[in-house]
Design a protein around this nucleic acid. Structure first.
Lengths: 170, 170
DNA sequence: AGCATACGTCAGTCTTGTTGACATTCCAAG
DNA sequence: CTTGGAATGTCAACAAGACTGACGTATGCT
């Protein structure tokens, strides 16, 4: 893509010049790609009584079993009331189990049930399939660049959360 | 990043192998980065009576002045009722002008007013600033990879829309 | 003349975010 | 030991922004 054209950006004395047009294309790429990114799980969820918020909760509980509500709150970046509604339905439906903390009884530790793991699997299978295709199409060097840019785009606290998750599962 | 570790992916006879873990990290990177991506405009908009939906409309009207409602509908991927609510407030507030089509009087062509352009500028300045930082941090090769992966992640129709926008503004 | 298209609007619902108020639990200072 | 503040989680009410469905109007095309 754009192989024979002028380079989209160039270095000069270690300084990178970027036109507004290049940046705007990056912005639009992000917008359109995120739509694709969420499309497959959204389609699956729309058949059930769940939405994207449930997907996110299930994803991160699966990723860090036993996490507390507060922990999840920080990762998801929503209010506890908003998360609670989602969590309540998931618990009622038997997808998530909430255990009172041993050391601190105020805390609730969250786990996926067998059924919860099944849903997580279905959703992440779909999402991974798209990601795999995109990674294959683009090639390993592009994937490395993709990750580097995304990490640089995160808010600092989110970069911490991301790195922590990444490193806890090697 | 991950310079001294095992490669995140490798080629073998032109076939790219990707572990579920690598894909999941890509998924999480996408999630956290998108939050950062929308954070700055969202902050600005929360002070006004507008939201992310208004930002998107203003962005694409600015990008393709004179675009029709139907066109915008396809780009944004929402229903006309949903877009109409947003558009109505923008027109009432004098940020967007709607002109009856000359050739086809059924169509409405959309333009930003002076005030609309000012808002667009404010929002996109903030968003571009973050994108510029990310691009600078990551470097030009990473940026190329970033774009390649995002394009591969889009739905086909959105890739068309994206490419059309991109090529119309060289 | 008749059907299709583009747009606007009204009404109702759903998801997911918000604030505010409140209950429970923990901990530390008096 | 008690008590008050902080942390954690729950309930209730509301708003933004998406959706569907139905309908009306103006226009275009055959």
């Amino acid at each position: 893509m754009a192989e024979g054209q002028a380079p989209a950006s160039y270095r000069n004395e270690n300084l990178l010049f970027l036109t507004d047009e290049q940046l705007r294309q990056g912005i639009e790429a992000m917008f359109f790609a995120y739509r694709g990114f969420t499309a497959d799980p959204d389609r699956i969820l729309s058949d059930m009584a769940y939405g994207r918020a449930h997907h996110r909760a299930v994803h991160f509980i699966n990723r860090a079993p036993g996490t507390t509500v507060n922990n999840l709150l920080n990762i998801l970046g929503v209010t506890k009331q908003s998360l609670n509604r989602v969590l309540r339905t998931l618990i009622e439906d038997g997808l998530v189990e909430s255990r009172v903390g041993k050391a601190d009884k105020r805390e609730r530790h969250l786990y996926l049930t067998e059924e919860g793991r099944a849903l997580e699997q279905t959703l992440s299978d779909a999402q991974r399939a798209r990601m795999r295709m995109a990674f294959r199409d683009a090639g390993p060097d592009a994937v490395a660049g993709f990750r580097r840019v995304l990490e640089a785009m995160m808010d600092k606290e989110m970069r911490f959360a991301y790195t922590r998750l990444k490193d806890n599962t090697p």
